[in-house]
Write a protein that binds this DNA or RNA. Structure first.
Lengths: 221, 221
DNA sequence: ATATAAATACCAACCGGTCGGTATTTATAC
DNA sequence: GTATAAATACCGACCGGTTGGTATTTATAT
């Protein structure tokens, strides 16, 4: 059986495969229930490879959170919701996009760092910090649009852009929990719809009776 | 050392003590990271007692979720937010109450069944179902007030009372995750404030510029 | 040749669960 | 009421598989 090398990179190197395995397995089983052997099996590598790349399980958790931050920020940076002139449009489109990708398998759309945070916030501060950096690094990308929307709509808010950005993540994280509890995605979709409605009410944008759908078309920015 | 009996219930029986231990330990460590020995140690009983009362670890998880449902529903049934004539007042007071109890130690205010759901939704369907029953049993208690508020405010909503009730729980669950990630409660408080603002906007209640605080006094119902 | 990457073999602690046994309470028989 | 029986509650040693982690060896790249 040939080993994976840079000259035979059919699936990438062992480190990346382990991080991808961590992303997938931890999202479906949780961090504590995931054994190192699980990860090695899923990644198709041996334990020796694991401990060559990671000092211990905690280090892998930190690296997995960092890997998650990298890949998701690249994913959202490429998304189409940025292609709008109005900052409020971009914000609403972002949330609508988040709703859209709540689709298919549960472990495919839920948040790795949100899941890990729940488990390790006391026992593994290093992982918790990496998860927090991922979450709030992402919310930070929303703040400029929120701030711009506040100004362009001439709203004197008694809340900060950062708090609203964080609130969007709270709703999403909570929606994931509801989805896991019910086993389907409708409750999560409904909750994101409430978030969308909140944003529209906040910024005084009144739309057709269909709610989010009314501006959800592909008209323009 | 005297054993605990029904005629000598100075500390309660082993079963209840194990359920209380499960509530506390699982909230701070998660389900998978909690060993049966952890629970026995915290409860002050032996492993023999554990397996006398519970078939296995999964059975304990189910029982812990059921115990959580019982105790929290009793806790909320006794709370003061019910003492208002207007159903919208009761709803807003409920959320304000939820905000108030986000205080002190993290493991003291977070939700056992939300935490467990994240970990076991695939590996232990029985526990997941018990958690779902706890969550949605609680949301069901909010629906009558939401429905009554819709009628009394003559609002034709394109959303269901059940979805709004579920949304309140999503925000709370998400707020707990943010609190665990940051290590403090301000982000959770902020998110619940956004939820309060949403409810006020939804039902067209305009209040003073202070937001939630404006109606948060102890004037009357 | 040497550093890196990865495979193999292995270990000690741990963990869920079992088991034999004891103490206490409750039900039954007379 | 009392002896007996049986159910309940609990104890703690023990077992076998698992798990995180280590030590050693082998393959590959430059």
């Amino acid at each position: 059986m040939p080993r994976q090398t840079k000259q035979n990179p059919e699936r990438g190197d062992a480190r990346t495969r382990l991080l991808e395995a961590a992303r997938d397995v931890i999202r479906s089983q949780g961090f504590a229930a995931t054994t190192i052997d699980d990860l090695c099996k899923t990644a198709g590598v041996t334990k020796g490879a694991f401990f060559h790349h990671f000092e211990n399980k905690e280090t892998l958790g930190v690296a997995a959170a960092a890997y998650w931050a990298e890949t998701t920020s690249a994913f959202f940076a490429e998304a189409l919701y940025h292609d709008h002139d109005d900052p409020l449009d971009r914000l609403l489109r972002y949330v609508a996009f988040r709703k859209e990708i709540i689709d298919g398998d549960l472990a495919a759309f839920t948040c790795l760092v949100g899941t890990m945070t729940q488990e390790v916030y006391l026992s593994h501060p290093a992982i918790r910090d990496a998860c927090a950096a991922s979450i709030f690094g992402h919310t930070a990308t929303l703040e400029p649009d929120i701030e711009a929307a506040l100004k362009s709509h001439e709203i004197a808010a008694d809340w900060t852009p950062a708090s609203l950005a964080a609130h969007t993540q709270a709703v999403l994280q909570g929606a994931f929990i509801l989805a896991k509890a019910t086993g389907d995605r409708t409750s999560a979709h409904d909750s994101v719809d409430h978030l969308l409605r909140y944003l529209q009410l906040l910024f005084g944008r009144t739309l057709g009776r269909n709610g989010p759908r009314a501006w959800g078309g592909h008209s323009h920015g």
